[in-house]
Design a protein around this nucleic acid. Structure first.
Lengths: 146, 146
DNA sequence: ATAAATGCAAATCTTTTGCCATCTC
DNA sequence: GAGATGGCAAAAGATTTGCATTTAT
């Protein structure tokens, strides 16, 4: 497990070099905080963690680097739709097609995807209410103007 | 189809009465804009649409009513995780357990859910990159403190 | 030495809140 | 007429940007 972290830090350094990103102290500490975490933290939470090691770091630096890591493919956002609330007045069972570039959302009838089936047990005593399935990719327009 | 809209407006009025929400002109126009839309608009987009019918409406009113409609169960947000970016440095295939109340996110190994399978064709020439599966519900802590 | 990155402060964008006037029931 | 709602402006929260200083390569 510790081994895995060391390997991930190694990968991180290599990726940075490959992408022309300087391996700064701040970047390494931010990335390590992310690699250690399993709670899918917000930038603010990452900032608080990193501050324990680098009290002088600024929140803007955390944001700038999260953005840089994303662009380098070192991390992802849990959902690509966090920028602004997206509303859905269609309460019937259905799914969504989400364009990663333009963030357009299109309905997908429930029957166009095999029903989600959980195999085995869910980790905790989680009370499942429903499933959200997002099909991520590029819409026709974005795929062609690529 | 027009029929469906009329029926939805009827349901809307009934739900409002049942929940003790006054059926104001603004509310009806906001709800109708949402019911007619299929692009999962942002509050700002709803505001622009509604302004065509009620030029004097304020953005705050749109936000307040979206909130009220949500609480009344008349609409949903496409993802419950839009408040702040949630980061994921684990790029391997996996899913997420999301608590609708506290917004905690927990990893779910890829093999705990049957692989998502698309039945038939996707509507447009959409270039699928990957699937996001969110299991929504209440985490153990929130379910018990309910 | 050079180009990129950091830190700070200000700006921007999204969403919420307080308060008084207005409308629904 | 009472209490909920709307509009406006200000506040709060999240994220980005500009710029001078510092750091990595």
């Amino acid at each position: 497990m510790q081994e895995t972290l060391a390997r991930r830090m190694e990968t991180f350094r290599r990726e940075c070099v490959e992408r022309g990103l300087a391996v700064t102290h701040q970047r390494a500490v931010i990335y390590e905080a992310l690699a250690r975490s399993h709670d899918h933290p917000t930038p603010e939470a990452v900032y608080e963690t990193v501050r324990e090691k680098i009290p002088s770091i600024s929140l803007a630096t955390v944001y700038k680097n999260i953005r840089a890591f994303e662009e380098a493919g070192l991390l992802r956002q849990v959902t690509p739709l966090h920028e602004s609330v997206r509303l859905d007045a269609n309460l019937s069972d259905h799914h969504h097609l989400v364009c990663l570039r333009c963030k357009s959302v299109t309905d997908l009838p429930a029957d166009s995807i095999e029903p989600v089936r959980v195999k085995g047990r869910l980790p905790t005593r989680f009370r499942v209410e429903r499933f959200n399935v997002e099909v991520l990719g590029l819409c026709a327009r974005c795929a062609s103007s690529q």
